[in-house]
């Protein structure tokens, strides 16, 4: 199996380049994930850098672009990728080294949408009540692992990475707007209401197509737009 991997070490390389690696057939086991293959390659070449941690798709460390699509390496079976696999860092963010990107801008957009519950006063004797129906509205939101696969697959983010919040941040924004316990939904919508933060979304839906957790940021953004417009 052949891997063509984007390499860049800022200390020694003037420009990024592709390096080809081979993984022997005997090393490939049924059910093997892309991350397992990367670990084998790192044994061959310890200078190959990529993030990983939980190895089961919950920590969000190992987003990469495999054959042109953003994936989490640890839950992407090699069998899905064919015999020639091209690996690149997540697009649209500065590269620190090899497959490791600088996610600062991604995190800043997340922080900007005030992604924390603002609830009524705390009462130690009883929780804030929420019906199962109200709670069900959070499904498809809170499971986000901040891997960045959606935002870095979004052409609107590529064009306006400093101004468009991007699907991950907007999914988080929506999660608090629809949380029955939150007391600031109007304030939140107002904050999202400008030509760029939310409305740069052109409904391309790469975000939903690329989410490794099967979430639907596109639908959440559409709902935010409707709420912002109806709120005016």
């Amino acid at each position: 199996m052949e891997f063509i991997i984007y390499r860049f070490n800022p200390e020694t390389d003037k420009a990024p380049y592709n390096q080809t690696y081979q993984l022997d057939k005997t090393q490939i086991k049924p059910g093997m994930m892309l991350l397992d293959a990367l670990k084998h390659l790192k044994q061959q070449d310890p200078s190959l850098s990529f993030r990983s941690s939980c190895q089961e798709g919950v920590c969000g460390s190992d987003g990469v672009n495999a054959n042109g699509q953003n994936k989490l390496a640890c839950i992407t079976p090699l069998s899905e990728l064919g015999n020639k696999i091209s690996l690149r860092p997540l697009p649209g963010l500065p590269v620190i080294r090899d497959l490791v990107v600088d996610m600062t801008q991604f995190y800043e957009h997340y922080e900007r949408v005030a992604p924390y519950l603002q609830a009524d006063e705390f009462n130690a004797d009883v929780e804030h009540l929420q019906t199962p129906m109200e709670r069900a509205k959070l499904d498809g939101h809170y499971e986000c692992i901040l891997c960045g696969c959606c935002t870095t697959s979004c052409p609107s983010f590529w064009w306006n990475p400093d101004k468009f919040a991007g699907p991950a941040a907007l999914l988080a924004a929506h999660r608090f707007v629809v949380d029955s316990r939150d007391i600031q939904p109007k304030q939140r919508l107002k904050q999202l209401d400008d030509a760029y933060t939310t409305f740069r979304c052109r409904n391309i839906q790469n975000c939903t197509a690329s989410c490794p957790k099967g979430l639907d940021p596109s639908a959440a953004i559409s709902d935010l737009k409707h709420r912002i417009i109806n709120d005016d």
């Binding site: 924390y116 519950l117 609830a119 705390f122 009462n123 130690a124 004797d125 009883v126 929780e127 804030h128 009540l129 929420q130 019906t131 199962p132 109200e134 709670r135 959070l138 809170y142 608090f176 949380d179 316990r181």
Partner: peptide
């Protein structure tokens, strides 16, 4: 008991019973 309610107050999306409780 109190610290779980505090977590809920911090926004943890606990699953719910029909009563609306955690």
């Amino acid at each position: 008991v109190e610290i779980v309610r505090e977590l809920e107050h911090f926004g943890v999306p606990f699953s719910r019973l029909d009563s609306g409780k955690i």
